[in-house]
């Protein structure tokens, strides 16, 4: 498993595709977490399921946790859920790349 993360539009999606031709890419994973939450699924369990079902997938996601804690409870839960889910994905990944201004910085 590989993980590509970054702030909005930092190039994580493009890097994931370019560096992994032919691999299955799970795009905008943060939005998948939002859907999982809406379906009542635990974010860690959701991420663990993805890791088990698609161990060779490449996950691309936005980092959404580096802001003021939202007043809205749902938004607050979403941000934290993305963090928890991505911790699971990062632990299961052999490679984690953080995109900054389109440049991939390998952090694992």
């Amino acid at each position: 498993m590989k993980l590509y993360i970054g702030g909005a539009y930092q190039g994580q999606e493009e890097l994931a595709a370019r560096e992994n031709p032919g691999a299955e890419i799970i795009s905008a994973f943060h939005e998948r977490v939002r859907e999982a939450l809406a379906n009542g699924e635990d974010p860690r369990a959701f991420a663990a399921r993805i890791c088990a079902e698609k161990p060779n997938a490449v996950v691309a996601a936005n980092e959404v946790g580096a802001g003021i804690v939202p007043i809205d409870a749902g938004e607050r839960a979403y941000r934290e859920a993305v963090g928890r889910a991505l911790c699971v994905i990062a632990q299961a990944s052999d490679t984690v790349v953080r995109a900054v201004c389109g440049i991939g910085v390998r952090i694992k």
Partner: peptide, 8 residues
């Protein structure tokens, strides 16, 4: 340091 839910 780190963002929300990142494992700090």
């Amino acid at each position: 340091t780190g963002g929300s839910g990142c494992g700090k």
